[in-house]
């Protein structure tokens, strides 16, 4: 039994090496330069993304580390001059799903099918709010906007981070998240409405909960 396992392992290792040898066109110095020049400068946004997904510094550390190790290992599949940031964000998001989400104390997955078909249907009318004072709004609820973001379910939080904090295009988000652009739009739409629901709750609570 043990020898069988051993044999399997050898086959796997062997396959691994040949695969790598076949693919490897870049020498180590080129890889290192690419890594240093194109990938390492993105550590700030990646760390912040990881932290906003996990809310834990150690987990964020691990996630970023794993992302960079994977990026190095798969550096051959990165096409130079393409969007390194989107590529790394995609690796990080996939690592998060694989490693963290399954164990997590994180909220369960939302049934998007339902949400998205609702938002794509024709009979949805949007409530429109009135009487706006943008300046007052900005000063007063900056922190609450951040809190509202953190309170969102992870998938809704993710789409807002990617779009509003990191400025990815819809097409880039579709690639990072492996979803069609239509789904990017509807998820963003839903996430923004949820944010505003939370802000509305805050406004109501403020009327009762805050001392002069």
């Amino acid at each position: 039994m043990n020898s069988l396992k051993g044999a399997k392992l050898i086959i796997i290792l062997y396959k691994g090496t040949t695969l790598e040898n076949n693919k490897s066109e870049l020498d180590k110095a080129t890889k290192d330069t690419l890594f240093e020049k194109e990938f390492m400068p993105l550590i700030g946004p990646l760390y912040n993304f990881a932290y906003r997904l996990t809310f834990d510094e150690d987990d964020a550390n691990d996630l970023v580390q794993e992302t960079y190790l994977k990026a190095y290992r798969f550096i051959e599949s990165y096409e130079k001059g393409t969007n390194a940031k989107a590529w790394l964000f995609r690796i990080l998001k996939n690592s998060f799903i694989n490693e963290y989400r399954k164990n997590a104390k994180l909220p369960g997955k939302v049934d998007y099918q339902e949400v998205e078909s609702y938002y794509n249907s024709d009979d949805v009318d949007e409530p429109i709010t009135t009487d706006l004072r943008v300046d007052a709004f900005k000063d007063m609820i900056g922190d609450e906007v951040a809190n509202a973001l953190n309170a969102l379910d992870v998938d809704f939080r993710t789409i807002i981070i990617l779009c509003d904090l990191e400025g990815f295009t819809y097409e880039e988000m579709a690639k990072i998240l492996d979803i069609p652009i239509g789904t990017v739009r509807s998820r963003l739409h839903r996430a923004r409405n949820l944010m505003k629901d939370k802000l509305r709750e805050y406004a109501k609570n403020m009327g009762y909960g805050k001392k002069e």
Binding site: P127, I128, T129, D131, R133, F137, K196, R200, A203, K204
Partner: peptide, 8 residues
Amino acid sequence: FLKILGKK
């Protein structure tokens, strides 16, 4: 706030 965010 209710004006900004709440009224439908």
